[in-house]
Amino acid sequence: MIFRQLFEADTCTYTYLLGCERTHRAVLIDPVASELETYARLLAELGLTLVYTLETHVHADHITASGLLRERFGSKSVVHRDAGAMCADLLVTDGVPLQVGDLEFRVLHTPGHTGGCVSYAMVDRVFTGDALFIGGCGRTDFQQGDAGRLYDSIQRQLFNLPPDTLVYPGHDYAGNTVSTIGQERAKNPRLGNGKTREEFIGLMRALDLPYPKYIDQALPANQACGRAPVPRQG
């Protein structure tokens, strides 16, 4: 497997490139519009054909590159059916398998940060988007956020994966790159070490986070796969 972890510094967003060494078919998970040329160069250098862009959710902090990549490479955009991005080519649900050459992904519906959040699980790793971070989790105070639902998603869908499963999050603000399910289950300050649902809900309610910096631009753009909506005529 070809694997690259890419980082967009302004919003501390991780994008993941995964390619099949046999077929040279590839996916990008959570691509960022401002990084389009970086992706194009990397695909060319590695001799990869982009097949899918996999969105973990409709983002509020950056604009996705999925629409731009579709126009440039013919790739198909994948989001959950509840994400609010009907522009996508594939609207998936929990348990749906995705095959790209020898790469196999399984969609895990992990709502709570938003109603349409998913994680993408492979045999040895899981891409958790804004559901589970390294030592944290996504916020739950906007965009259909629900702390209790996020707790349930992480406990049932993610913490039930094998403990040595690698965790690759959608963001990190402290220089971390990878964790494991076992480490997060044991040590995550918000969710680990037996934290109860009630404790987690109370913790999330008390965060008092600032209004997302780019949400007013990012949310409508991402509901159109990163492309400006076409105005209605007449």
Score class of each variant (00 low, 15 high):
D172A: 09
P163K: 14
R25S: 12
H109G: 06
F159G: 04
E199I: 05
S66H: 06
V126E: 04
G47C: 07
Q143N: 15
Q143R: 14
N188E: 00
I63H: 00
Q144G: 02
C87K: 01
R70H: 13
L43M: 09
Q144E: 11
R106Q: 12
G101L: 02
A131C: 07
A88T: 00
I2N: 03
A147R: 03
R149A: 04
T110Q: 10
A186L: 14
D172F: 06
Q223H: 14
F105D: 09
D152I: 04
V78I: 10
R149D: 09
L103P: 09
Q183G: 06
D61I: 11
C137R: 01
Y39G: 05
I215V: 14
E45P: 01
T180Q: 06
V78M: 04
G115K: 08
R190G: 00
G135I: 01
K195W: 05
Y120W: 05
V58D: 07
R25Q: 15
D172K: 08
V27A: 08
A44E: 12
H24F: 02
D61F: 14
Q5P: 03
G74H: 01
Q99D: 02
Y168S: 02
M1G: 12
A60C: 12
M86I: 11
Q155E: 13
A121Q: 03
G175W: 07
G19C: 03
F200C: 05
V51M: 12
L36H: 02
I29D: 03
Q5S: 13
L209N: 12
L28T: 02
P212V: 04
P210Q: 01
G101A: 03
A65N: 02
M122W: 00
E184Q: 14
G67T: 10
G194H: 07
R190H: 10
H171P: 01
E71C: 10
R227N: 11
P162F: 03
G148D: 10
L36M: 13
P189N: 07
A186Q: 14
G234F: 13
H62T: 02
M86H: 15
F133C: 05
L42S: 03
V178R: 13
D164V: 01
F3W: 13
H59F: 11
E55W: 04
K76H: 15
G148M: 06
C12I: 01
C225M: 10
H171I: 04
I201T: 13
T177F: 15
G19T: 01
G135H: 03
P212D: 09
N176W: 15
L209Q: 11
P169T: 01
Q233F: 12
G47P: 03
E184W: 09
A60G: 13
T93F: 13
A131Q: 02
Q223A: 14
P229D: 10
V126N: 00
I63L: 00
P31L: 08
N188I: 06
N188D: 05
E21N: 12
A85S: 14
L90C: 06
L108H: 09
D141T: 05
C137K: 09
R22I: 05
C12M: 13
C20E: 00
A221T: 10
K76R: 15
D216P: 09
L6K: 04
A206L: 01
R125Q: 10
